[in-house]
Design a protein around this nucleic acid. Structure first.
Lengths: 126, 126
DNA sequence: ATTCATGCAAAGGGTTTGCAGGAAA
DNA sequence: TTTCCTGCAAACCCTTTGCATGAAT
């Protein structure tokens, strides 16, 4: 299930591995366009989906759109319900605990997604 | 933040409290239409959003669309990556553990959402 | 009587897809 | 050379919105 390497895919991958934000396809497109002015948004979408299927990046469903995350190690997300900001949380024990608890024979467990909702520091101060 | 009671809102609420599935707006519309043939999809959306804002139902983002859940007590979801089926999981300890672990002063924590991904029994057998 | 919710239809926004040309293997 | 990927534009789908009517308080 390996796919052909292209400049577009490479730049997209590199960008996601560089930042610790959780950009949408549009945001990735905007950034990668600086290096590859001719790239199209459709290509960005196709590559993001491809990479996600291959398990090389994560695709998160937050605030009604997809956000992509270049880091696949076990972590969680914090989402501000006021400004929409997404932050990382590195508490492996939480995910581990959850995964261990679910030992159902009826369900072949693959992964967990844990999202915390609340109000971020910035929004709280206002 | 109470809103006016209408027949439409009532039937939507009642339906969600009756089933343990996680219908989309479209599905709710389809069911509620049997009782209220004149109801519109827009009304269903408006009421579902209203109820979710008021904390009376949950709005889940799964498989690229919103699913609604009439049960707000602490629970988790299982999602089959093959057929898209959503199931409930009632392991309060998992959510409790997660919430307890996050005691950040920088973030005013409100809730957790925990989703397990994998392959359901039905899909596994094929 | 006033305010708010509804139905309808149209618009919106994010994501996917068909196709012909072009790049990777 | 063959296969796969790309760019472009159009299509898609879910969700939201504006407006005039009708229902709830």
């Amino acid at each position: 299930m390996e796919t052909r390497m292209t400049n577009q895919k490479l730049k997209i991958m590199e960008h996601l591995q560089k930042v610790r934000t959780h950009p949408t396809a549009e945001m990735v497109y905007h950034i990668v366009s600086k290096d590859l002015p001719a790239i199209s948004l459709a290509t960005v979408y196709r590559n993001l989906n491809l990479l996600a299927e291959q398990g090389k990046i994560l695709r998160l469903e937050i605030n009604g759109e997809y956000h992509y995350d270049g880091f696949c190690d076990s972590h969680q997300h914090l989402v501000c319900t006021n400004c929409g900001k997404i932050m990382d949380l590195g508490q492996k024990e939480i995910s581990n605990y959850a995964m261990k608890k679910i030992k159902s024979s009826d369900f072949e467990l693959k992964s967990v997604r844990i999202i915390f909702y609340g109000v971020c520091k910035n929004c709280k101060e206002k």
